[in-house]
């Protein structure tokens, strides 16, 4: 028999092995739910599948009695809008500052210490400050995401810029390029796929800050809804929302990978 480190699954076995933990968790939940329901039919902690269906139907496919909106989709739209605006702004700032500090040593020496200092501030600690400065509207939630992930993006892209072999910079100079041309023709195109990598890593953090901001001050949003119904121990709403957020996070990650592979094939082939 081959050693364990040399035994690799074929595709169908790999898929089966990968699905097993998901099925196990679902079965375990189903069993736990039935046990609790048998003891107390009004148990709220582990709702049954039909209760989930009712809750999803009520939130996603029936207009709210109070506002006439479909709450689930309204929450999704608000949350995604905040998340995407925040992440897009952070990506832009991160790209600009990471690139310029990595490319121009004088600017790097000037800005890197302050960027490092700011990146050490826990963003949640300045959340009250954001609420005071930017109000309780959309802006403060977007700002929390920006404050939360921009320092990481700047520092990561600074390092990625530095990692580009100096041979290429010398080569570009011998081809007559000036600093500006080197930045936009040699460094920027090679940093863009690395920006997408960094965004994938920071999306989890962005969700964290989004939900934190919504939990504290909001009138809609996925995080708001979860924290709202927590008061009534509505696991039938909380769990579908968590699964939905997980799915959205997966979808965004998948989109970033696909985009990167479509636009920057040279980057993925060379790795």
């Amino acid at each position: 028999m081959k050693r364990w480190i040399n035994r690799t699954p074929n595709q169908s076995l790999a898929i089966t092995l990968g699905i097993i933990p998901f099925l196990l968790i679902m079965a375990l939940y189903q069993w736990g739910s039935e046990v609790r329901k048998a003891e107390n039919p009004n148990d709220k902690l582990l709702p049954s599948v039909s209760e989930f269906q009712t809750a999803i139907d009520r939130l996603a496919f029936t207009p709210s009695k109070r506002t006439g909106e479909y709450l689930f989709w309204q929450d999704t739209k608000s949350s995604l809008q905040r998340l995407l605006i925040g992440v897009a702004c952070a990506a832009f700032i991160g790209l600009m500052l990471g690139l310029i500090t990595g490319a121009i040593p004088l600017i790097g020496a000037n800005l890197n210490p302050i960027i490092t200092a700011i990146s050490l501030i826990p963003p949640m600690a300045v959340l009250p400050l954001l609420f005071i400065v930017f109000g309780l509207g959309e802006l403060s939630k977007v700002m929390l995401i920006i404050v939360g992930i921009t320092p990481f993006l700047i520092r990561d892209l600074y390092q990625r810029t530095k990692d580009i072999p100096s041979e290429q910079l010398v080569k570009a100079q011998t081809l007559g390029a000036n600093s500006f041309q080197i930045i936009i023709r040699v460094l920027l195109p090679q940093i863009l796929p690395r920006l997408l990598d960094a965004l994938r890593l920071s999306l989890g953090t962005a969700w964290l800050f989004l939900i934190a901001a919504e939990a504290i001050a909001a009138t809609d949003g996925l995080g708001y809804r979860i924290f709202l119904v927590r008061r009534y121990l509505s696991m039938d709403v909380i769990l579908p929302y968590v699964v939905w957020i997980t799915f959205l996070a997966f979808l965004l990650d998948w989109l970033l990978v696909k985009t990167s592979k479509a636009i920057f094939p040279w980057y993925h082939a060379a790795k």
Binding site: P165, E167, V170, K171, T174, L175, G176, P189, W266, Y267
Partner: peptide, 19 residues
Amino acid sequence: AEPCDERGIVFQKYSVFPH
């Protein structure tokens, strides 16, 4: 005192632009 287009260079590696 810095590289310029009077002098061409070929290194052992990393001389070309991958993108």
